[in-house]
Structure formats: structure tokens, C-alpha cells
Amino acid sequence: CFCLPDPGVIRVVVFEDDDAVLPCSFGSVNIEHQVFDWKKDGQEVFIYDSGRTYGDGLSGQDKQFEGRVEHFPDLLKSGNASIVIRRTEVTDSGSYTCDSVQNGVSTTQSRIELIVDPVLIEGRPLILAAAPEPYVTILDQTNDRALLQCEVRGIFLKPEVEWQDSSGNILPAEEPQVSERGGRYSLQTTVTKTDRYRCVVT
């Protein structure tokens, strides 16, 4: 079961060498001229300051993340401070915070627990079950809604994937997307934060 606590910690699970999107929303406020700061267990991951970022006028980023972290410039107007970590490593696993900074005072907007699972067999994850465990990611969210993605990996026969609410009702979703890398299927849906949801794979 995947729950959306508000406030709470969002759990993001990816496989090593995949990209990880860490969501952070300021509501509908335009943040193009604001400051937001991403940290991992005290390490500096990414900072945005009125158009400047690490490598573009700002220094101080931890070497672990140099050249691998990006934000979404086109989404700043809608309050989206999410970032993507490219080519994740197992050592990227940990607790992340997204803070807004105003007049030197930081306020946490999002808390993320990132888990990067190692790839175990010939570049493919080791999955023993007939129906692999799905991985859920929040791609975007507002105060009352969230865009969820359910991803099934490491299989080569197309699975049946669907989103259900707490009553077992199937939710409307986009057509499943097949990764170019093969063995990966994803299904997206937009939900409200007033219920509990789960991704079912058969």
C-alpha cells in the first residue's frame, strides 16, 4: 500500500543508475525569484537562488552530486521545486529535505527518503517473484492532489498493472509506458490526498 501523508516523508525507490525525481511543491506560488535548497543528511545537493544554481554562479555543492542534479526551470512558475538526480548510485540513498529560504530562515517544504537498490545480475535487477514488487514515485503534487507513477521492472512479459483506491476501485490512468531499455513498464494516475492507494501488478 502506498500512502500520501501530509505532512510526512515521501519514499522514492529506484534502481542503481536510474534517474530519481525528488518532488517538492510550494503550492501555486511562482518561485522563479525565490530560494530553495536541497540537502541530504547535511550534504548540499542543489540550491536555486533567483535563477542561479550550482555550477552557474553558486559554489558549495557536495562533490557526490556534481553534474548529476537538475531542476525543472519551466515548472518554477507553478511552484515546482522538484529535482532529478541522474545516474543514481547506492550511496545516494538517504534522507533529503527541500527547504524554502527567506531572509535567512529555512522552512522545510518536502522530506524524501530515497532508496537506491543495487543492480545484481548482468545489468538487471534480481526479482524472484512472478509478479515483481512495484515501485511508486510522486512525479508532481499540489496541496490536495498528486501525480503518481507505478513502475514494474526487470520483467520481459507485459504485466497487468492498475491503480486502486482503498475500496478496491480501479482508478483512471494513462496507457502503460514501455521503457526503451526494455523490461520496464510504468503507469501514471492523478489522485487526491484524501484516500489510500495501491499499485497492483499481476
Rank of each mutant, 00 (worst) to 15 (best):
E44Q: 03
E66D: 06
R68I: 01
V69R: 05
G79C: 07
K63Q: 11
F46P: 00
S50E: 14
I47V: 13
H71K: 03
Y48V: 01
H71D: 14
Y54S: 02
V84Q: 15
E66L: 12
V69C: 10
Q43K: 13
V69G: 03
G79T: 04
D74K: 02
E70T: 07
K63G: 05
K77G: 13
G60I: 09
D56F: 06
L76W: 02
R87K: 09
F46A: 00
I85Y: 13
D56T: 03
Q61S: 07
E44T: 00
D49P: 02
V45R: 01
D49F: 09
Q64T: 10
L58R: 04
V45K: 00
Q64K: 12
I47K: 15
G79E: 06
I85Q: 14
G51L: 11
K63W: 09
G51H: 09
L58D: 08
G55T: 08
I47W: 13
G51P: 14
F65G: 05
G67W: 07
I83F: 07
A81H: 10
F65D: 06
E70G: 10
G60F: 15
R52F: 13
L76G: 03
K77M: 08
L58Y: 04
P73C: 07
D62V: 00
S82C: 05
R86P: 13
R86W: 15
D49V: 01
K63N: 11
D74M: 07
F46N: 00
V45H: 06
R87Y: 09
L76Q: 06
